[in-house]
Design a binder for these strands. Structure first.
Lengths: 154, 154
DNA sequence: CCCTCGATTAATAACGATTCCGATAAAACA
DNA sequence: TGTTTTATCGGAATCGTTATTAATCGAGGG
């Protein structure tokens, strides 16, 4: 399986003021076509498997740049490891405790429902006063359908 | 300011099957009396400032053991760094983007309200079917009252 | 009160992930 | 095409964390 670099990726890079170099095209193409939330290390393994070579230093540099320009989002996995994700709609993650699989959960407006609830549910103030909430980090941790079936509970 | 090791700490250790050694007493006393969410490094700095010496290896070993026995909870900060917290009620964190201050938000039953909402709000299924949700990681990121006043927005 | 043995500590080395560095190569621009 | 800017690469350096190991501690038995 070869990696496919289409026109859209090149254009996306240029639109964000980045030169469409091979390294950047590879990174974006990989994340897009695999639709995964890889760590840097995992990206390298995957790229190697597809016959593509990339220096680890280059990978890190470009990930930082892609995040900086808003093309990717960097987030922290369950064990503190960094993972990267396309910058899609505001969304959260559904993480399988058993196999580590991560799935996006698109929750645009829905999460806005949480905050007021925290503020005054059953008479108690749950959030201390005076704080300005800018964003929320919400991850759901559970067991994916595949792992449930195989009884690989962990 | 000296660190205060009270009877309760010693007893808590014993209750969890741990010998009440100096290292463990120091760690628990520090977290309790400062009521902070320190990283290991921060704990050392703090302890040194109070005239207490502790090998970093010992610190790490004991943090692991305290987490293992359920006295502390290890969690991942905004930048992927490890932080430790007393194992209180299920709760989430309120993190100041400006000064890094972290405050606990006790949200026992309240968060249970989120899940059904995600499932069927406005007709769309937000969570994919077949997943068993075991826990949620929820952090609120914002600006604390102090930082709001001083205009140290970041 | 001292001995003994397992638990704990602390120093050091080892480790993995990330970043820095200097030289070479590629892309953009004139 | 020549020049300038930016990217790439491999290796060394750094950082936080863990493993190793020898010295020390401490509770219970004699």
């Amino acid at each position: 399986m070869k990696i496919q670099i289409d026109q859209a990726i090149t254009q996306a890079l240029q639109r964000h003021g980045l030169r469409p170099t091979r390294a950047r095209q590879l990174i974006l193409a990989l994340i897009e076509q695999d639709n995964q939330h890889y760590t840097p290390e995992e990206m390298l393994v995957r790229l190697n498997a597809m016959g593509e070579r990339l220096s680890i230093a280059t990978l890190y540099q470009n990930l930082a740049k892609l995040v900086d320009k808003g093309l990717l989002v960097k987030f922290v996995g369950l064990d503190g490891e960094y993972r990267y994700d396309y910058n899609k709609m505001p969304h959260h993650h559904l993480i399988c405790k058993s196999c580590g699989r991560i799935v996006d959960v698109l929750v645009d407006q829905t999460l806005d429902a949480i905050e007021p609830q925290l503020m005054d549910a059953d008479g108690q103030k749950k959030l201390p006063p005076g704080w300005k909430i800018l964003q929320r980090r919400v991850d759901f941790i559970g067991v994916c359908p595949d792992c449930s079936q195989h009884g690989t509970d962990n």
